[in-house]
Simulated assay, not measured.
Amino acid sequence: MKNALVFQSDFGIADGAVSAMYGVAYSVDRSLQIFNLTHEIPQYNIWEASYRLIQTTVYWPKETVFVSVVDPGVGTNRKSVGVKTATGQYIITPDNGTLTHIKRMCGIVEAREIDETINRLPNSGASYTFHGRDIYAYTGARLASGVIGFEEVGPKIPIEEIIELPVIEAKKDKDLVAGTIDVLDVRFGSLWTNIPRKLFISLGISYGDKVEVSIKNNKREVYRNIMVYAKSFADVHVGETLVYVNSLDNLAVAINQGSFSRAYNIQTGTNWIISIRKAPRLVYE
């Protein structure tokens, strides 16, 4: 039985790049089942590519093969790798930080550098700008179809050598928790943080409590307000703000039926710091 092959990239679908990767995969095995994670990663945004993998990968069956191509360093000496996750999936990708969240939050049990003398689309050797088609789609399809086993991807490399992007850990400081805004819930404009639910509730906060939220871009505060810690969007009126627990069991901030990111011009990354504490009684009583 063939394993699923799941593609992710920053290519979009306005041209033929994604279709070309499909074509290469089907040329390996026409019976493959191919799916898309997303092709709407912002151009060159390795951080978001990493986040979308952790958001999705662990929910797929063991031996599913993911091909992630967000590769601003294509043509340089960055490695091409395949890894096996602690939950049993495979990821084929440039070693440029794309595996940051998988390595930290899921775990990698084995890593291999792709042997491009074997795992490269035939007659593509003169091209150095479309490794997504020529190396990653080709290798991913060969692995998913069973043409090669994982050991045939290439030689083993130490897991600790897999490149990670800089991360700022969420922390608790007396009466507040602080972390970073890692990514947006793109379609709805909610802010997804790296603050775990368990760390947050250690402040003694329960559903329905009012919390004070502060957001800084570097050291400049761009937002501060009081909102409800809600179980779901239905707990507040349309247009009201809320703090809730997202699908990764981390805290998120939103406007019910509105875009928090667009309303307050807030973006993502390690320079966007969010802190949350139980609102002082003087503020809301």
Rank of each mutant, 00 (worst) to 15 (best):
M1N: 14
K2E: 11
A4I: 03
L5P: 10
Q8A: 14
Q8H: 10
G12V: 06
G12L: 02
I13S: 10
M21V: 02
M21A: 12
Y22V: 04
V28E: 04
D29I: 03
R30I: 08
S31K: 13
S31N: 14
S31H: 13
L32V: 08
L32F: 04
T38V: 14
P42L: 04
P42S: 08
N45I: 01
E48L: 14
A49W: 02
S50G: 13
R52E: 15
I54K: 15
Q55H: 08
T57S: 13
V58H: 15
P61S: 10
E63N: 15
V65Y: 07
V65A: 11
F66C: 12
F66Q: 12
D71K: 05
G73C: 11
K79S: 13
T85N: 05
T85I: 00
T85G: 02
I91T: 02
C106L: 14
G107A: 05
G107H: 06
I108G: 07
E116G: 01
P122L: 03
N123Q: 05
G132E: 04
D134Q: 06
T139K: 06
G140I: 13
A144W: 06
E152R: 11
E152C: 04
E152K: 14
G154K: 06
I159F: 06
E160A: 14
E160I: 12
P166F: 01
A170L: 04
A170C: 07
A170G: 05
K172G: 03
K174A: 12
T180V: 13
L184A: 05
D185H: 08
F188R: 03
G189L: 05
L191R: 03
L191T: 04
I195S: 05
S206N: 12
G208A: 01
V211A: 05
I215S: 08
R224Y: 00
V228T: 14
A234L: 13
A234F: 07
V236W: 00
V236G: 12
H237D: 15
E240I: 02
T241I: 03
L242N: 01
N246F: 00
N246S: 01
S247V: 01
D249H: 03
L251E: 04
V253E: 10
V253F: 15
A254F: 12
G258T: 14
G258W: 08
S261P: 09
A263G: 02
N265K: 15
Q267D: 13
T270F: 09
S275G: 06
S275E: 15
I276L: 09
R281I: 08
E285W: 01
